[in-house]
Simulated assay, not measured.
Amino acid sequence: MKAFIFDLNGTMINDMEYHTRAWQDIMNTDLGANFTYAQVKEQMYGKNSEVLIRLFGEGRFTEEEMQQISLEKERRYQQAFLPHLALLPGLQDFIESAHKHNIPMAIASAAIPFNIDFVLDNLNIRQYFKAIVSADDVTISKPHPETFLKAAQLLGVKPADCTVFEDTPKGVECAANAGMAAVVLTTTHVANEFAHLGNVVHFCDDFTGDYVRALVG
């Protein structure tokens, strides 16, 4: 492998339930909606502003209002998830091994820097990653390939030489659009939800299995 690109939420940490519940709380309690957990979960991809537009419609909020709502949602998520913040099993050893083998790694996420910093700094893993691409660094969100293509560019490798770790169908579709293979972490979605995507090379619950370990072995 020439390079590894990681999605963050649901891929490196198992936190998507906390994001979904934080959104549901904001939308129903603060914004007067009545969305079910399943309805919110279905829209959990892309930038926060895009989530709001998909669920509430274009023009409901100004850009400033969406930024304020987004930050409040992330504060609630972080407060709830911090006691549970941990890398998926096997990931610490995996990134340490990849780092020792000089395999460049990037994080490429639709999260805002506020959330990426929350994870990297609380877990003290920033030093392992040569590049970080956040929601603020791209014009078009996943499944458009910009996020992963920018990560590959920053790592100085060809897209075809990258393996992406993802947990959502939209993220794997983004990898496919970028010409990259994907390893799927089944923290949030089950395998049959990826059946329409031909770039999946492996499904796993975490980073402890033989297939994943062999990527750096």
Rank of each mutant, 00 (worst) to 15 (best):
D167C: 07
I112K: 05
V190R: 14
L185Q: 08
N177W: 03
R126C: 09
N177G: 13
E146R: 00
I125D: 12
C174I: 05
F148C: 07
L149G: 03
L123P: 01
E146C: 04
L120F: 10
L123R: 06
I140D: 12
P145K: 11
P159R: 13
A135N: 04
T187V: 06
A110H: 01
L149R: 12
P145Q: 08
A135P: 01
S109P: 04
P113Q: 09
G198D: 14
I95N: 06
K142C: 06
C204Y: 01
C174L: 00
C204T: 15
I95L: 09
T186L: 10
L154T: 08
I132W: 01
E173P: 00
N177C: 11
A191C: 10
V119C: 02
K130R: 14
F114N: 11
T139H: 07
T186R: 09
A108L: 07
C174N: 06
P143V: 03
K142L: 08
E96Y: 03
N102R: 11
G171K: 08
N192I: 11
I112C: 03
E146V: 04
P104M: 13
N199H: 09
A110G: 15
A181T: 09
Y128L: 04
V164R: 07
A106F: 06
D161A: 14
I95Q: 10
N115Y: 05
K130H: 12
E173N: 10
T186F: 00
G179R: 10
S97N: 15
F129M: 05
C204K: 04
D137P: 01
F129N: 04
V190F: 08
G198I: 03
T188R: 06
P169G: 14
L123A: 04
L123F: 02
I116H: 00
A175D: 03
H196L: 09
V119Q: 01
K170T: 14
V138C: 04
D117I: 11
T147R: 04
I95W: 04
T188H: 06
A106R: 13
A108E: 06
G171T: 05
T186M: 03
D121A: 02
T187I: 01
E146S: 05
I112H: 11
N102W: 00
L197V: 13
V138Q: 01
T163P: 09
K150Y: 08
A106W: 01
A195R: 14
N192W: 07
A191H: 05
I140Q: 11
